[in-house]
Design a protein around this nucleic acid. Structure first.
Lengths: 336, 336
DNA sequence: CGCCGTACCGGGAGCGCTCCCAATTTCATT
DNA sequence: AATGAAATTGGGAGCGCTCCCGGTACGGCG
């Protein structure tokens, strides 16, 4: 292993100077810098990140914590895209990402291990589960962290999110504008705040039109394609003329069921989804959906986290990214 | 931060003794051990993994490298499940996992960074792309690594895989046994070895029955659901009586197209998939498929890697996990 | 009672780096 | 040419731990 000391010896500079060169410290003359760099390049020297971390007290490693249960939702492109955003941002800031899949069983042991072992400079938590003990523990620790998705039980923490409530409301309102009146909804997993918030938005939209939220028109689809299909089957006997589906993945399942039932989308029943995953555009018919930029969500999470690492006592930051209704065919807007 | 030294001071033992206790070294009397442990527990001491790594020369961190391009296949449950297997195994061996999404652009910089920075004790590579420069670099470095999926260009390395060739062959043979003769295939991404091998197995099965592999009956589905659907549309005019689909994810797309085309599965056309993802059982009709235990693949990768970390000069190991044909309805076996 | 072997324990060195402070050099200014 | 400030450089301490080596205590044996 090539060490700083060795570079120093070979370039005739001191360990300190080499360190300065490697770290782009301006207090080095151009001449020495060039001399040192040559040796660095020749030996293909790579600073040992472990030693650096120990000395500097920071590791340049961020953690992403994903509860195992949430991992089951991976078939939804949401998480992969989020991870990609996180990874991209980390790369550009010269940070590394470590992925932690939290096992709910040994949650406690896990928390202690992650928070105190000194490996992480900060963590991004995509806990979506309400009342997560992880959040409490994180809040009590000194480790900087940011949530992806707001969290009601953690009042004063940083998070990055979209406004699920008003986005859902807007999606439903769009259906109202197109003349639909018997609007159902298929909700996401209701242990997640996104699931709850999107339901909330649906209810508000109905209330604005002085309509009651009928229990038979609200079905849980659990954020999976299968769940969405099952929920739609429950809905069928009640003849909704439109459905707000809380994720595109579920909407794909819904479309399948409707096709099997011989219902035409959007003539017989209109559909609006959420997320704008790639599948939405390819669906048959193409899905009208509320777009959120999941990758950007991940990137912003990193930026927010890095900010609170650099400025430990700047207060919490909340970042709300915009959403946008992408009108395609499943809502029937093109028919009018 | 609680340090070893502090525990030592408070428990009246030396730094060394505390270290021994923490690391379960047997050369400590029960009395001192108990005394030390009490303080450890009271202060909730967690060893600093960074300092430990520097001193011990190993980090207890494994890397999983996934090329960004492969990441696009995340909508296939394959990767999430693989990761879960890796994560589970690491947890049980007290290792941490860090996920590296390799950007093909700055591949070189990336490789240097990962291989030499000292953070990783070893890496698991799920490169599926043929002729990957990563493999070459890894091979040249001293870092232990194991591939998930064999790699033809890397002869003497450890890997964990299933026998894709003979598994595919068996799947196609099953269709022959059921009386099908005009058997088509939808292949996976042919830049991946799994994609190539499964095609290979298909060809062998045909040859065994003295049938030529007709180009019009071989379509590329790229391992995605959409790709599978598109490939099936290409196949339709040639009226196959059976299709071997190289992944269940693609098979789901295929089923959709067949339904739209008014073809009955399995009466008009039989289907066999690959993987046995959860979707296979839920498909309509339930999908006959060649099952591989993806999570076990991940676990074995970890075990293999740890083995070669502990025994640096034990030769490479190749582990081939068994596959199993799961007969459901899409192949038509239940009709006979 | 003295000796030796074993079990247990403590301290020093060192992992490769950063950071601080002090020493040295350079250079503009009078 | 002398002076002082600024730029550059070098060395030491130390991050929290492991590992090695040597020391002490204790027991059994002749």
């Amino acid at each position: 292993m090539v060490t700083l000391e060795e570079i120093a010896r070979l370039s005739g500079a001191s360990r300190s100077t080499v360190s300065r060169v490697v770290n782009n410290d301006p207090h080095v003359s151009e001449k020495t810098r060039a001399r040192v760099m040559e040796v660095v390049r020749k030996l293909n020297y790579q600073p040992n990140v472990i030693a650096r971390s120990l000395a500097a007290g920071r590791t340049h490693v961020l953690g992403v914590i994903i509860p195992k249960r949430v991992m089951e939702l991976f078939s939804d492109p949401y998480f992969p895209i989020l991870l990609q955003g996180v990874s991209t941002a980390c790369n550009s800031f010269n940070y590394a990402v470590t992925l932690w899949l939290a096992d709910p069983e040994d949650e406690l042991r896990f928390i202690a291990k992650v928070l105190n072992n000194g490996l992480l400079d900060g963590v991004i938590v995509s806990s979506m589960v309400l009342a997560d003990p992880l959040i409490t523990a994180l809040d009590a620790s000194a480790l900087p962290f940011v949530l992806v998705g707001r969290h009601p039980s953690a009042p004063a923490v940083s998070y990055v999110d979209v406004d699920n409530i008003s986005s859902a409301q807007a999606a439903v309102e769009h259906l109202f504008q197109l003349g639909r009146r018997r609007i159902a909804t298929i909700t996401g997993m209701l242990e997640t705040i996104a699931g709850v918030d999107r339901l909330r938005g649906y209810e508000i939209a109905l209330r604005e039109h002085d309509l009651p939220a009928l229990p038979e028109l609200i079905q849980d689809g659990g954020f999976t394609e299968e769940g969405g299909a099952a929920a739609m089957r429950q809905l069928l006997p009640f003849h909704p003329d439109a459905v707000f589906v809380a994720s595109d993945t579920m909407a794909v399942g819904v479309l399948r069921v409707l096709r099997e039932a011989g219902l035409r989308v959007p003539q017989d029943i209109a559909l609006v989804g959420f997320d704008d995953t790639p599948a939405a555009a390819h669906a048959e018919p193409p899905l009208t959906t509320m777009k959120q930029s999941i990758a950007v969500l991940g990137e912003m999470a990193v930026e927010t986290l890095l900010h609170s690492i650099e400025h430990p006592d700047s207060g919490p930051r909340r970042i709300i990214l915009p959403t946008q209704l992408i009108v395609r065919e499943s809502c029937g807007a093109h028919l009018r």
